[in-house]
Every structure is written in C-alpha cells, then in structure tokens.
Design a protein around this nucleic acid. Structure first.
Length: 663
DNA sequence: TACCTCATCTTC
DNA sequence: AAGATGAGGTAG
C-alpha cells in the first residue's frame, strides 16, 4: 500500500484552536506575491507554533523557511492549504515590534517583507540557541555626563532621558569631541531607567570604539557587526532578543536589533554612505530609526560632526530639537582652519614639499605639529570618482541650467570630435556653459590626485614615519607620536590625544563630485578629519586646499555645519530634490520603464522627470511628490510594479526610493 | 496516436 | 522565480 508522507505521519490533525498560521515564506518572490501564505498547524506543533517562530513549510512543492506571523481561526484558501512541516525552534525571533517595523520599511521602500526580514534577522545557528540565557544584568547607575555641559541644551537633554521622557535630538559634536564617550553617557543614562538602547555607527572601527566607551559605564553591552562569524553573531543577537543586554552597538543591521523595551535609538554620522543598506530594498539607517522610534514611542538621536540636509529637516519640522555648542565653546575647541585655493596657493619654498604639491601654509602646519610631538593627518581623495565637469576657473561643479544636475561629456564613441556637455539627470545639452559661481565659460574635467602622496610626503619630511590608511588596509588607531598619516576619507585612524594638524588635500576634487550631495559630503569628510585635531590653543591647525570663497569651505573655516545644512536644504527645496521631496528612481529597458510610467497613478503633487539614458540601453526615470505624499508615491509605484510582475512582463525594472545618488 | 515544445498559470 | 499544466504542433 503506497501512502503519501502526510498520511504516513499518521493522519495529522489540526490544532484545537487558531489552527491557521499566516506565514511569510523566505523565498525571493515576485513582488505581487508579497503577502502571507496560510498553513494548517498540526496538533503536535500547537504549543510551539507561536507568532514569531521560524517554521519549515512546503511552498510550491519545496521545503522552505518562513516566519509564523500570526495564528487565526479561518482561511480563505481551505482547498489549497497544507500543513506546516515543523516548527524549527520555539525561539520567538520575530517580535511584534520588529515585524511592524519591517512591514513599514518594506512599504516605504517598495520592497517585500521577506527581503527586509532577511536584513533584520540573522541566520539561525542551532548551537548558539541551545545555550541557556544569561542572567539579566542590573541597570547601571546614572552617569555624571559632564561632557554634555559644553552644549547649550545638553544637560536638559540628559535630564529628560534620565527621567524617562521621550526626547529626540539632532546633535552636532564639537571638533575634538570624544563622541564615543558622549554617546556612552547618553546610553547609560537611558539604561539607568531600565530601558534599552541601540547605537548604530557606520563601520566596525566605530563599533569597537563605542563599545569600549559603553562598556566602561554599563554592564550588558553587546557589539553587533557584520564581520562576526555566523555562530557568534547569532549568539549575541539572541542575547539582545532574550533581554539579557540593554545596550546594543552595531552597524546598519543593528537598526533592527530586537532590544527589549527600547528607550533610545542613536545614529552616528548619518551622512556616511555605510548607513545605506546595499541589499534590496536599500533602506537607510536614519529612516529606519526615525520610523522605529516613532512606532516604539522611543527617542532618536541623530549625531555627527557635520549635519545632513535630512537631519536639518528633522530640526525644521520640529521633529527633533538641535543640540549645539555655544559660540565660545566652539572657539575654545576648534582648530585653526585655513583654506587655500589655487589662485592664492603659495607653494612651499622647500624643494621636496614643492614636489608633493604642498602649499607653504600646509607644510608649516605639518612641521609645527610634528615638532610638538603630534601626528599629522593628510586626507587625500579616493580614486575613481565619476568623471564630471567643473568650472575651469573656480572648480565649482558645472550645473545644468534646467535642473541643476551634473554636466558631463557624453561617453561612448571616441571619434575625437568635440561634443557639448550634457546633463546626466535630464539629458539637456549645454552648448553655452556659464559657471553659476564665477561666470566663467571654461570647463575642465575633474580628476583625482595621485597615490604617490605618501612617498612624496616622506621625502618632504625626512626622518618621520609615514603611515597610510585606506582601501583594503585601514588603520584603526595611531599613537600620540609624530608621524604623517595619509588616509582616504572615512579611513582616518583615531589618534590618541588628537592630531596636531590635518591637511585636506585636493579638496576641490571632493567638492567636484558629480553628485547631488557633493558639497554636503565634502563638508562631512572634512569635518570628520578636522574633528580629530586638537584645539587652536594647543596649536591645532587644519589646511584645506579649496577656494576659500565657496560656501562649503566657509562652513569648514567657521565650523558652522548648521548654516551649511540650512543652505543645502534650501538648495534642494528650490530644485525639488530629496529630502525636500520624496523621490523614486525607476530603472530598466526603455519599454519597461515606459510601461511602468504608463501604469503609474500618481498623487496630486506627482511629477515625472526623464527618462534619461543610463547606458547598456537602460533608462532611468525619476518620479517625485511632496513629502506629505511620500507614502502615496511608494504605494503608486508599488501598484504599477505589481501589475507588471503579475502579468509577467519579461524585462524587469528596478525601483529605489530616495536613493543616495540619483545617478 | 504518442510525444514534444512552448506558453501560461500557480504558488497557502 | 520556477515547477506544473495544458494547448497545439509534429513525427510516425
């Protein structure tokens, strides 16, 4: 007698009540199938089949993993329903909070729940799970937090958090600030009330620094970063889930860490591109935490040396008050910053310094710092920026006069014939370029500096150690000793006791990037480096090689990230770019993009830009609405894409909401 | 009439 | 996305 597996298992019977499980299956489904599937819960699984557990189910014939989202009495699909194969483990890994958050993130970014859950919940590691839970550590006592007195609303902010009140904030750290210590004080303050804290930083070096700072004040801190092995990662994540730790420090996936009773979420340096998830649907840590804090009734702290336009918007809309230092505190803390553009560059008289293209002021600043026994940071731009055009005179990025997009020379056939510049966003041809800043009509290609900087500096400063940090080989820390430290942006080592000087070389190249965020990014990179330099009173000097008249350079010289963020935001408001508006990009072959646009039912403020060619016979359309209609935009794009995947149109389109780069 | 290919349909 | 189903065509 032949029997099917189901029958041989002995006539499975459904659980007595709520025998229908709604399951999110973990398979890359086409977008129109992003909804839960119903499965019958067998009686023997009744106890374990709780919402949030992992289950094993048969989906289109194959065994797959899934999350049990909820249990209900009835199903609409009684004729097709199958039994759950088994409950993988009774561990409730998807908490109601994270489920709600993941759903919201999926909706916001036009992605599927399964894709977001894959970012939020690490893969299971059975051995880590079987270990017994540690005891819950007692909350720490409230720390002194003297460091916050330098900021106008600092003490009041700490008080609010310490009294368990919800208090969002956007914090600009003073130059030289020991920001990991300040974040640790904030975390300890919230933890002392018994609530949980999640701190998200851009990379593992920052995780280590903040973890160390937090561990000095708090028992029960855990570091979560992608470089951990699967077993260790799951083990630490479980300690968060089981509520045995109160404070989580980690990189972007930690934004979803299921900390118990969260009171505060922190994102450090929200302008760092490391906070943008590289996997679909590409959520950004800042957005995830804004959403999460809102849903959880917890506070959000957006902190950095510089300030993004997005953070400025949080301030402007009243979502978060700002925490900045009074002017006299800034004067006491800031290094002396000088900008030298090409027109006023006086190269050092020293022969070797001349070879290294070092201006006299930079050479002197470095020499003084070395003499004082301190390391000198030399920031050089990374290779491989998108080729773009800038004004030949003042190096300001060449803008399209219609949409302010970046101008570039059309690539492709190299027949030598000079061709006019084109806008990379709207495709408009520019034959009569005129610089928006200085009025010059000449254009030049933006190129990046050479890798020889390190050798050349070695020759300019004989007898001093030259260290490099960047690309594959990132240095975490340098000692408090004279040395030249050549680093690419984002790879600057932490200097014990601070740098004596920072030389920000080829600053104009960073400014000239063909990017909506070029100026914001330039200031962020400069301030991150300059923020590691000792105060002017201790001889701290910063030299940036860029035109001193440019607003971004001014913002660095005056150390005024708030002014710059306001400028940046009003610029984007004027042009109609994020974060002033909500925007979606739709990529694909021309027919596919056209079909989606055709299907698109936009809300009232909706507007379509392009499509513009994207290379490889692909096109990109930009779609925008007011921020208020952001959700409607996401829904409209989702509906249009769903129609397409449902009728199995051959050419796929890729959608991104508010991408970091529009090109 | 058996068998193969390609399009369409379904996924609990 | 990918296996299951079925329409219609083709060889024998």
């Amino acid at each position: 007698m032949t029997t099917s597996g189901n029958v041989r298992r002995g006539e499975r019977r459904p659980a007595a009540s709520a025998a229908v499980a709604r399951v999110s299956v973990d398979v890359p489904l086409p977008y129109h199938l992003d909804f839960p599937f119903d499965y019958r819960i067998p009686a023997e699984c009744d106890a374990d089949a709780r919402p949030g557990v992992r289950v094993r189910v048969r989906f289109r014939g194959k065994l797959t993993d899934g999350f049990l989202l909820e249990r209900v009495e009835h199903t609409e699909v009684a004729d097709k329903i199958k039994y759950i194969e088994r409950v993988v483990s009774p561990e409730v890994v998807l908490t109601p909070e994270i489920h709600g958050l993941a759903r919201a993130v999926a909706d916001r970014y036009v992605g599927s729940l399964a894709n977001v859950l894959r970012l939020a919940i690490p893969p299971r590691h059975a051995r880590a799970e079987s270990r017994a839970a540690d005891d819950l550590v007692p909350p720490p006592s409230r720390p002194a937090a003297q460091g916050w007195q330098r900021y106008t609303r600092g003490p009041a902010y700490l008080d609010a958090l310490g009294n368990g009140r919800s208090a969002n904030a956007v914090w600009q750290a003073l130059p030289g600030e020991d920001w990991p210590a300040r974040l640790a004080e904030v975390a300890a303050t919230v933890a002392s009330t018994g609530k949980g804290v999640v701190i998200v930083v851009p990379d593992y070096r920052d995780v280590n620094r903040v973890f160390a700072a937090c561990s000095a004040l708090i028992d029960g801190v855990v570091a979560l970063s992608a470089d951990l092995g699967p077993g260790e990662r799951y083990k630490r994540w479980l300690s968060v889930l089981r509520g045995t730790v109160r404070v989580v420090v980690g990189t972007k996936a930690a934004a979803f860490a299921p900390v118990a009773d969260p009171g505060l979420f922190v994102v450090w340096d929200d302008g760092d591109s490391g906070h943008a998830e590289q996997l679909a649907p590409y959520p950004h840590v800042r957005d995830v935490l804004v959403q999460r804090a809102h849903m959880a009734g917890a506070s959000l702290l957006v902190a950095a040396f510089a300030r993004t336009a997005e953070a400025q918007l949080l301030v402007d809309t009243g979502w978060a008050p700002e925490i900045v230092a009074a002017r006299e505190q800034l004067r006491a803390a800031a290094p002396r910053v000088v900008a030298i553009g090409e027109t006023d560059t006086q190269l050092a008289r020293d022969e070797a310094a001349r070879t290294a293209r070092l201006p006299a002021i930079a050479f002197d600043a470095a020499r003084e710092a070395l003499k004082a026994g301190r390391p000198v940071l030399v920031q050089v731009p990374r290779r491989g920026y998108v080729p773009a055009l800038a004004c030949a005179n003042c190096r300001v990025r060449a803008q399209c006069r219609k949409c302010a997009g970046p101008l570039a020379l059309p690539g492709g056939s190299d027949d030598g014939a000079p061709r006019p510049a084109e806008c990379r966003w709207c495709g408009a041809v520019e034959v009569m370029f005129r610089c928006t800043a200085c009025g010059s009509r000449r254009l030049r290609a933006v190129v990046v500096g050479s890798k020889r900087t390190a050798e050349e500096l070695g020759r300019a400063f004989p007898g001093f150690v030259v260290r490099t940090s960047g690309a594959g080989d990132v240095l975490a820390e340098v000692p408090a000793a004279p040395a030249l430290v050549v680093a690419t942006p984002g790879a600057e080592p932490y200097a014990v006791g601070g740098y004596g000087a920072a030389l920000l070389l080829d600053g104009w190249a960073i400014l000239g990037r063909a990017d909506l965020r070029a100026t914001e990014e330039a200031l962020r990179l400069w301030m991150t480096a300059a923020g590691m330099v000792v105060p002017a009173a201790q001889g701290g000097r910063v030299v940036v090689t860029a035109e001193s008249g440019l607003p971004t350079v001014q913002a660095l010289v005056r150390w005024d990230p708030v002014w710059h963020a306001n400028l940046e935001l009003s610029g984007r408001t004027e042009l109609g770019f994020p974060p002033a508006v909500r925007m979606a990009t739709i990529d694909g072959v021309p027919d596919a993009v056209a079909a989606v646009l055709d299907e698109l039912r936009l809300p009232a403020t909706g507007e379509i830009l392009g499509p513009v060619p994207l290379g490889e016979d692909k096109e990109r359309a930009l779609v925008r609405t007011s921020r208020a209609e952001g959700r409607a935009l996401a829904d409209a794009v989702a509906a249009a894409v769903r129609v397409r995947t449902a009728r199995k149109d051959p050419d796929p389109v890729r959608v991104r909401m508010d991408p970091l780069e529009l090109l």
